[in-house]
C-alpha cells in the first residue's frame, strides 16, 4: 500500500528534476530536488512504495535519465499516467522503474489516496475499485523483469 502523488498534464523533465541539479555528482545528491518547482516538499514527503499519478504526456522534454532515476531513488513504486513522453518512458524501463499507462485511473483518484499495484497482472486498486492497466510490449516487460537494461546486459555478457 502506498500514497498517491497526483500531478497534471505535460509534466516536463525540468519540473521533475531541474537543470541546475543535473551535474551534481550522484543521483542521491539530486533526489531531494525532485518536483521542486511543483511541490518543494515532495522529496521529504514521499515514502518508498508511493505512487506518482499523472495525466497526459508525463516526462516530456529532455532526455535526462536523471528524471526517472530520482523517482526510483526516492522509492517511487511506479508512475501511472494516461500517457508518457517517449524518451522518459524508455528511460524508465531501462532503469527498472515501472511506468504504467492507465487511461481511467487519473480522473478517479485524488492526491493522498491509498493505492495498491499488482505489477504482475497490471491491476491498480484504490478506494475499493480496480483499474486494469495497459500491458507493456513483451520486449520491454522482459527488460523490466530483469531489473533494467544494465542487469539484462550483464546477463547477456555472463
Amino acid at each position: 500500500m502506498g500514497k498517491t502523488f497526483r500531478f497534471h498534464t505535460d509534466v516536463d523533465t525540468d519540473q521533475i528534476i531541474a537543470s541546475q541539479y543535473l551535474l551534481f555528482p550522484t543521483i542521491d545528491e539530486m533526489k531531494m530536488h525532485t518536483f521542486e518547482s511543483l511541490d518543494p516538499n515532495f522529496a521529504s514527503k514521499v515514502k518508498p512504495g508511493d505512487f506518482v499519478v499523472a495525466a497526459e504526456n508525463f516526462g516530456c522534454g529532455s532526455s535526462r535519465e536523471q528524471a526517472p532515476s530520482v523517482l526510483k531513488a526516492l522509492g517511487v513504486k511506479a508512475v501511472i499516467a494516461k500517457s508518457f513522453a517517449r524518451i522518459f518512458y524508455r528511460n524508465a524501463i531501462n532503469i527498472g522503474l515501472p511506468v504504467i499507462v492507465c487511461k481511467e485511473l487519473y480522473d478517479e483518484v485524488a492526491d493522498g489516496d491509498d493505492m495498491e499495484l499488482s505489477l504482475l497482472d497490471g491491476v491498480v486498486t484504490t478506494g475499493g475499485r480496480e483499474f486494469t492497466c495497459t500491458k507493456l510490449p513483451e520486449y520491454m516487460q522482459e527488460i523490466l523483469d530483469q531489473g533494467g537494461l544494465i542487469a539484462s546486459l550483464n546477463k547477456e555478457e555472463a
Binding site: G61, S62, S63, R64, E65, P68, I87, R90, N91, N94, I95, G148, L149, I150, L153
Partner: peptide, 25 residues
C-alpha cells in the same frame, strides 16, 4: 544522449535522443 538529436534529420540521418542507460548499452 540529448533530446534534440532529432536535428540530424536535416541531413537525412535518423537521430534520436536517449538516456544514459540506453547510451551505455
Amino acid at each position: 544522449a540529448d533530446s534534440h538529436t532529432c536535428a540530424y534529420g536535416a541531413l537525412g540521418a535518423f537521430g534520436t535522443g536517449v538516456g544514459c542507460t540506453d547510451y551505455l548499452y
